[in-house]
């Protein structure tokens, strides 16, 4: 399985949870902490992220950056 990870800008996350719902892997959850604006923000908790970008696609605050494992280069 392809590996990925995401970075969530916790200071702009408003904790709307739409990414949690959109994540097919169930990798995200709402933090118990609050950010500088008073929102509970989302965090990546599982190691099973595939970098599918679904969370970033539905994020209304452009808070998510997605990284995906490079495909191994085929031998020439």
């Amino acid at each position: 399985m392809i590996k990925g990870y995401i970075e969530i800008n916790k200071d702009i996350c408003k904790g709307c949870e739409l990414c949690i719902e959109a994540c097919p892997q169930g990798s995200l959850r709402l933090s118990t902490h609050i950010n500088t604006r008073g929102y509970r923000y989302v965090e990546l908790v599982e190691q099973n992220c595939t970098g599918c970008t679904n969370c970033a696609l539905v994020c209304p605050d452009v808070a998510i950056t997605v990284f995906r494992e490079q495909k191994p280069k085929k031998a020439v």
């Binding site: 702009i12 408003k14 949870e17 209304p60 605050d61 452009v62 950056t65 990284f67 494992e69 490079q70």
Partner: peptide, 27 residues
């Protein structure tokens, strides 16, 4: 070993959206 496959475009400023949580305007 990882590629960035999704990030904020430069055509958006760094200003935080004022929209309510979950509002479709941001998307």
């Amino acid at each position: 070993g990882f590629d960035c496959v999704y990030e904020k475009p430069d055509t958006l400023t760094d200003t935080r959206f004022h929209y309510c949580p979950g509002c479709g305007h941001g998307v």
